[in-house]
Simulated assay, not measured.
Amino acid sequence: MSEISINTTQNVKINFTAASVGVRIAAYLLDFLIRIAYLVVIYVVLFNVFQIDALLEKIDRWSAIAINLVVCLPVIFYSLIMESIYEGQTIGKKLMKIKIVKLDGYQSSFSDYLIRWFFAIIDIYAFFGLIGIISLVSSKNTQSLGDLAVGTTVISIKNDVTINSTILEELSSEYVPEYPLVIKLSDNDVRIIKETFNKAMVKTDFEMIGKLKNKIEQVTGIKNNSRSEIEFVRTVLKDYNYYTQNM
């Protein structure tokens, strides 16, 4: 699996693992089964409960086509609707633990999902998906044509979850916070700070820790006058946990 480096909006680079072609295909097949199950259930209900077959016999051909089209709309727009609601995931992607992300670090917009949905005609349905597979295999960041068009890719979010891989920090019952202004940060900000801090500590990259400290001060307005840069970042992480868990 290839590594993808994404420069976040906080100007911090984070590496992700690209979702493999096999996993992306598996997610699509799961979504395909969900769509088939919907059609089976809806038509069983319409024909057996509402006796729609009698209605279809009484109306003209174009009206019958219109009714069937309306019934099929959730199937046609399934991926667009799900990815817009769940921020880059369908049910299949959730089950396979993969997600659509922007390579520039920004949140994908509805227009991004719309363009990807349109390009699925070529990526998935043209030549039995051969064009999409060739694009995934040959592109640098494992991107389909739809991904290339809007600057997205699909990453794996399957990780062994420990306290070190979340924004949580272990706090004693006697812990006293120092920086109330940490509440200006978001969960995503803190996740990025912690991931970057942990990587910097492993590599003893004190320059990166200094950049983190400066960025935290800039965003929150906190001024560190006494602690070392390492202790300052650690205190910010703990204070954020304290305030968010006790609000």
Rank of each mutant, 00 (worst) to 15 (best):
S111R: 15
S111E: 14
S111P: 10
S111H: 15
S111A: 14
S111I: 13
S111V: 07
D112R: 02
D112I: 01
D112C: 03
D112Y: 05
D112T: 08
D112P: 07
Y113P: 06
Y113R: 10
Y113K: 08
L114I: 07
L114A: 14
L114F: 08
L114M: 12
L114H: 05
L114V: 04
I115Y: 09
I115N: 14
R116F: 03
R116G: 07
R116V: 06
R116H: 05
R116E: 13
R116N: 14
R116T: 04
R116L: 04
R116K: 09
R116D: 10
R116P: 08
W117V: 05
W117G: 07
W117M: 01
W117S: 10
W117A: 08
W117L: 05
F118L: 15
F118C: 14
F118Y: 01
F118Q: 06
F119R: 09
A120T: 15
A120C: 13
A120F: 02
A120W: 04
I121D: 07
I121V: 01
I121G: 10
I121M: 05
I121L: 12
I122Y: 02
I122V: 15
I122Q: 11
D123E: 10
D123G: 06
D123I: 05
D123N: 07
D123Q: 06
I124L: 03
I124N: 00
Y125R: 07
Y125P: 00
Y125S: 02
Y125I: 00
A126K: 11
A126F: 14
A126W: 06
A126H: 09
A126V: 13
A126M: 09
A126P: 03
F127W: 12
F127D: 15
F127H: 12
F127A: 15
F127P: 09
F128K: 11
F128S: 13
F128H: 15
F128M: 13
F128D: 04
F128T: 12
F128W: 11
F128V: 13
G129R: 07
G129K: 07
G129L: 02
G129A: 00
L130Q: 07
L130T: 12
L130G: 08
L130R: 09
L130N: 11
L130M: 12
I131S: 07
I131Y: 08
I131F: 12
G132V: 06
G132Y: 00
G132L: 06
I133N: 09
I133E: 02
I133P: 04
I134W: 05
I134K: 02
I134M: 03
I134P: 03
I134C: 05
I134F: 12
I134V: 03
S135I: 03
S135L: 11
S135C: 08
S135D: 11
S135W: 04
S135F: 10
S135E: 11
L136N: 00
L136Y: 00
V137W: 04
V137Y: 08
V137S: 10
V137C: 08
S138H: 11
S138L: 10
S138D: 09
S138I: 14
S138R: 10
S138M: 13
S139F: 00
S139D: 01
S139C: 05
S139I: 00
K140C: 03
K140H: 00
K140N: 01
K140F: 00
K140Q: 00
